[in-house]
Every structure is written in structure tokens, then in C-alpha cells.
Write a protein that binds this DNA or RNA. Structure first.
Lengths: 140, 140
DNA sequence: GTAGCTGCAAATGGTTTGCACGCGG
DNA sequence: CCGCGTGCAAACCATTTGCAGCTAC
């Protein structure tokens, strides 16, 4: 899973902070984590890490294609594992819940619109914002 | 167009900075402007305005429904006039060019996806990121 | 052993806020 | 005239960067 192999391939040394961060993404129940989230979890776990390192590692992982960065309107970036499967997101602007989905037709039409206007599309996912309708949306 | 009426309706006094900023959005060839953009233009035009005021006015206008705020990945927010017509955006991540489009089918499918996951959709526009393919994309 | 990493602290960039003055109604 | 609105400076918050010591290989 998170072999030092992945890091080697990216030209990165297999250091403690890097391995721990990869591990976090694999074991956390939350797929989408911010730098601050990760930093706090690591400090809680007793790791001696700096916030700057977390930011540096996340950026390196993004460039290496291990993670994908999203912005989600909140003012802070969140990251998720890059499993190669493109998908879009729906985000609750009240409680922050994130769901993922994929719609072939939307993809086709996005691409068509991009080409029509002379753009080469990036693999940037669509994000829909809304509010949870079901139940427990009692945000801070 | 930019009658003090709009401002009155929003419970805002028709002050110089507010009128000038509205005017800017109506007369500028760029539909999408950041706070910094607006500030610089006004200073250049000889207005004695503060950046803080620009931010405050933009936020008020957004709340009054006169403007819409977007984030576009760049780290800085941009605003456009709210003409009531919902549309999506394609943004060049190299040169910043913005095009607008609308696709009925995408809208339908977005809404369907949102409902499927228990969300009530906001009128938040889809943003596609890509790079200009045609020609003059020589960014700073 | 050495280049690449790290933690810390300071710097940055966008945005917000506190405050005393000043203009709009 | 009264209070909302303003400019200025300082505060904030996410993120980046400079630097001296440390570590993986």
C-alpha cells in the first residue's frame, strides 16, 4: 500500500513525516483532509512534526500524483488520495460533508464545452455546493 | 442601471465608493474582477479609497445579491454582476481567461446527483479548469 | 559524508477588524 | 445632527520561505 516504493518513484526519501502522512490518508475514515487536520492528528499522536513540513509534504505528494488538492470554497485546501478514478464532489456548505459521484454525460459535456471555447481541459473535478437536507447538519 | 435605488433596496447609503464600484462593474470590459483589481483601478482613477472599503462593499453587494463571488482556484476571490442568469465557467489556469457557458443537461444531472446524496443544491456554478489551446496564452 | 529533509520562526498575501473621523439622509 | 460608512493601521489566517541542524542512503 504505502511502500517506500511510491516515494522512491517520486524521487523522495522515505522519511518519517512522509510515511506517517501517507499512512494517515490510508487509515483515516475521512478521505478529505486539510494540512491543519493532518498536523493536529500527528501532534495528538505524539509525532514531533512542523506545520511547514506538512505543507511541504502535501505539495510534494500532489506533484508526485499521490494526492489531489481541492479548494472547496472554505478558504483552506483539502487533499485526498489519488486513486486514479476521476470523480466529482458535492459539499455541504453548512456541515462540510463531502460526497463523491461520477456522471459520464456531465464529463462529456464539460469536455465539449471546454473545446468549444478553445480550452484543453485539466482533470479538475466539478464541485457542487449545497446544504444537507436529510438530518444531522449541525455545524459549528 | 446603477441607480442609487439598488443600494436603497439593500439598505445601503448611496456613497461615493459604492456608486463607483457599481459603475466599474457595468463599464469594465472584464466581467470578473478581484478586490485588488478594483482597488488599483480606483486609485489609478484618482479616487481616494481604501482597500478595506472595497472588500466591505463587495461583501455587502454580494449579500444584497448585486454581485456573485467566485474563487477560481487562484487564491483570490473574483466578483461578477449578478444578472440573474445562472451559468458555469471555464477558466484557463495559465492566463486566467474566463468563458461562460450553460448546459441544461449538466444542470439537470447536477441537481439529480445532489438530491441522490441528500443535498439541497445551492446556485453555485460549476467551474472547469483547463489551459487555452488556441493562441495567446502567455501568462505572467 | 552529503544532499535532501526537517522544525522553527519570520515573511507573505489575501482578507478582516478596531477605531476615530466625516459624509449622507 | 446622528449614525452609517470610510480610511488607516493593525490583526488574522492559510500558506511559504530562510536557515541551521539532522537523517536517510
Amino acid at each position: 500500500m504505502h511502500d517506500p516504493k511510491d516515494l522512491k518513484n517520486a524521487g523522495l526519501k522515505a522519511t518519517l513525516p512522509r510515511l506517517k502522512i501517507l499512512e494517515l490518508f490510508e487509515n483515516s475514515e475521512q478521505r478529505h483532509l486539510s494540512a491543519e487536520d493532518i498536523y493536529k492528528i500527528m501532534i495528538t499522536n505524539g509525532e514531533d512534526v512542523g506545520l511547514a513540513t506538512v505543507y511541504r509534504v502535501l505539495t510534494q505528494f500532489e506533484q508526485a500524483g499521490l494526492l489531489v488538492r481541492h479548494h472547496f470554497e472554505s478558504g483552506k485546501a483539502v487533499f485526498e488520495m489519488n486513486e486514479g478514478t476521476h470523480h466529482d464532489h458535492i459539499v455541504c456548505i453548512k456541515c462540510g460533508r463531502v460526497e463523491e459521484f461520477y456522471d459520464e454525460e456531465i464529463e462529456k459535456r464539460q469536455k465539449a464545452a471546454a473545446e468549444k471555447y478553445g480550452f484543453s481541459m485539466q482533470d479538475h473535478s466539478l464541485t457542487i455546493y449545497g446544504t444537507c437536507t436529510k438530518t444531522s447538519c449541525n455545524e459549528s
